[in-house]
Design a binder for these strands. Structure first.
Lengths: 179, 179
DNA sequence: CGGCCTATTTATAATAC
DNA sequence: TGTATTATAAATAGGCC
């Protein structure tokens, strides 16, 4: 969205990174505001800048939303004033959280893979070179990550559909071995 | 960002609202992910859909970020396990939170005002009509909101620059009367 | 930092499946 | 809701104050 296309990789120059943070933080808060207004959604964002400064946005407020959410997801170090018994919904929602994170990664990987794919076509490489690319460690690794992510998220979804009791923190799905 | 320009107003059709929510939630999470990757920022988002379903995104995780933030902003109904004494930084950061929200509103109002301004010019209305528009209750209300917002935020900034003790929850600045 | 500017890239509204 | 397409609006990288 700017003069040049930019990778989603860490910005190395500290000053540049701070500038990027400020601009994108503003954009993120605006999007959050739009979302809450247009859809009547309640949401809260809290974050720390590269310089560890705290920022937040909330509608109707960070605390209201955070309280509602924490009440359903009592996994932080903070304890509730009244500790009502957890119900199985907690597990489902914890999984849903993790799913959101995984989904973003899936989209990232998918996009990268697509881009690589298109570059291959653009370059009109010979069939031999093409094969070599498709067998490249980088691409293979991407696809593997992608498939792993899908497997994990599917597994989460399955679990989320069934009432589950006593989910451990260890990996839910067996992941395929890396050689 | 679509086939048509859209107001940032509540989407009335419930089905449409849900669709919009899903698309924009995806977009918001993507932006959040980009921000954390590019700038090494830690952030957490929690939200409730129009249908009150919970969604969240966090890097490195919602709980890690929420804990760090709550530890500095102990204003929710959740209490800390170890209640260390608050320092004056807490007040500043609470103000900073509120500022973020106000800033977004300022931008919204400013944009609306600018748009109205441009429409006036485009329409090349007669001077008489022009005057009428500038005196319209809607525009006046907008400008008043805008000025109020600026006054409040400037006041907050001033307070934030000085160590403040014992800020109440009542309005910090006197707001001009509405007639 | 936070604004302002503009060439570009990105997000997304409308639409259909 | 998920997926895909596409015309268009919006965000933003880089640059300069």
């Amino acid at each position: 969205m700017g003069r040049r296309k930019i990778d989603i990789a860490e910005v190395k120059d500290p000053n540049d990174r701070q500038v990027t943070f400020s601009k994108r933080r503003t954009g993120l808060f605006k999007k959050a505001n739009d979302l809450s207004v247009k859809c009547g959604a309640e949401l809260a964002i809290v974050m720390f800048s590269p310089a560890k400064r705290p920022y937040s946005f909330g509608h109707p407020s960070v605390n209201v939303v955070a309280d509602k959410f924490l009440r359903k997801n009592p996994t932080s170090n903070y304890v509730r004033e009244n500790d009502a018994p957890d119900d199985e919904v907690d597990d489902i929602e914890r999984l849903r959280q993790q799913l959101s994170v995984v989904e973003v990664h899936i989209n990232e990987e998918q996009k990268k893979a697509t881009e690589l794919d298109e570059r291959e076509k653009e370059q009109e490489t010979s069939e031999a070179q093409n094969k070599e690319l498709q067998n490249s460690p980088v691409l293979r690794r991407m696809v593997e990550d992608y498939v792993d992510a899908i497997e994990v998220s599917e597994c989460m979804l399955l679990l989320a559909k069934e009432p589950v009791i006593g989910i451990s923190n260890r990996p839910i799905c067996k992941r395929r071995r890396r050689n």
